[in-house]
Computed example of a mutant assay.
Amino acid sequence: MESTALRVGAVKRAVTCYHRPVVRQAGHFMQRRAFASSTTTEDSFDAAEPIHFSSDRNQFSKRSTSVEAPQHRGRIDLARLRVVPHSPSYFTSAPQYTDDLLHLSALLRRHHLLPVLPPGQAPRVAWKTIDQYKTETAEPVRVKEYSAILTLLKRLNYIHPSLLPAEVLETLQKYKRDVQPHLNQAKPILVDEYGCARAVGRRKSSNVRVTVVEGDGQCMINGRSLTNYFGRLHDRESALWALKSTERLDKYNVWAVASGGGTTGQAEAMTLGVAKALMAHEPALKPALRRAGCVARDPRRVERKKPGKLKARKMPAWVKR
C-alpha cells in the first residue's frame, strides 16, 4: 500500500510541475502584451520635409553621416530610384499579351457602335498563327488565350471599311501575316498558237504534266498508250474521267508525262491535269467538272506505319492479349 501511495504522489507532482511553467509563461506573456504599447498622446508628430528631386549623382555620393549631408536632407537622387514599369502588366507572366488584349478590348469598346458588314462578308484576312505570335512576344501564350485575341480581331474586322478608324486599321495590320494566301492568284491556263493547253496535276507524290489538243481521242502517257500504261480498268477511267464525264472522249487528244508515286496516284493526278487543260478550251464546262469531282485536288495521303505496329494503326496480337 505504501509503495502504491508513493507512486501516485510522484505522478501528481510530475503533472503539477509539467503544467506550472506553462501557466507562468502564459501569464507573463499576457502581462507584457497588455502593457506593450503606450496609451498616452503626449508625443507630437511633425510632417516630413519636402522632397527635392535632383539628378546630380556626385552631390549624393556620401551618406547622411557626413558633415555636408544635412543641407541636402529631403532630396532624392533620381539615379538611385527604382524604375517604375510603364504598364501594370509588367508583373504578369505575359505582359505583352495582356497589354495587347487590353488594347483590343479598349478599341472595341470605343468603336462597337460603328456599322458592321453582314455576316460572312468581312474582308478575308490570314491572321498570325500562335507560333508566330509567341515568337514575336517571347511569352508562354496558350491556345485559349490567343483565341481571345483572334475573337476581338475578327469583330473589329467586321467594321465597315469606309468607316474604319485609323487606329483600328493600324492595329489590325499588326496582327496580319506578311503574306496573305488568298491574294495569290493562280496563273491562268491559256491555249497557245498551236491549239495546245498545258496543265499540271498532282496527287500524293505523283506529278503529271498534261497537254490537251483537239483531236480524235488518242491518249499517250510517257510514250505508251493508255491501255498499255495502266493495267487496271479503274486507273484508265480515272485518267480520262474529266473527258468521259463531259462526253468529250472523241474530241481531244491527250499527251502526258507522269513521274513519282504509283499507278493510282498518277491516274488521279492526270484527272486533275486533264480537267484544268479542258477548262482552258471550254471554260463553260467548269460547273460540270466540279460536280464530277475533277477540279479540286484530293489532299488525302496514306497514313504511314508507326514503330511497334503492324500497320498504321493495327497492333500486334500479343499486345491485344
Rank of each mutant, 00 (worst) to 15 (best):
A5C: 04
R7N: 04
K12D: 03
H19N: 09
R24C: 09
H28C: 11
H28E: 14
R32Q: 15
A36G: 03
E42Q: 14
D43E: 12
S44C: 08
A47F: 06
A48M: 11
E49V: 10
S55I: 07
D56G: 06
N58C: 04
K62D: 15
K62T: 15
T65S: 15
T65E: 13
R73F: 15
L81P: 00
V84H: 14
A94P: 00
T98N: 12
D100L: 10
H103S: 14
L104I: 05
A106S: 13
L107G: 03
L108Q: 04
R110Y: 00
H112S: 15
L117W: 00
P118C: 03
Q121Y: 03
A126Y: 01
D131S: 09
Y133F: 13
K134R: 15
E136Q: 14
P140W: 09
V141N: 06
K144Y: 02
E145Y: 00
Y146N: 03
S147C: 01
I149H: 06
L150Y: 01
L150F: 01
S162G: 02
A166Y: 02
E170N: 13
E170M: 10
Q173C: 07
Y175H: 11
A186D: 10
P188M: 12
Y194V: 11
G195L: 11
V200K: 15
V200P: 01
K204D: 09
S206E: 07
V208L: 09
V208W: 05
V210A: 09
T211R: 10
V213R: 14
V213N: 08
E214L: 09
G215V: 06
G215Y: 05
G215S: 09
C219M: 10
C219H: 04
I221M: 04
G223D: 08
N228G: 14
F230Q: 08
F230W: 05
G231W: 06
L233N: 03
D235E: 07
R236P: 00
A239L: 03
S245H: 04
R248K: 15
L249I: 12
Y252P: 01
Y252C: 07
V254R: 08
A256I: 02
G262T: 05
G273M: 12
A280W: 10
A284C: 07
P287N: 13
A292Y: 08
C294A: 15
A296Q: 12
K306C: 01
A312T: 03
K314Y: 02
K314Q: 12
W318Y: 05
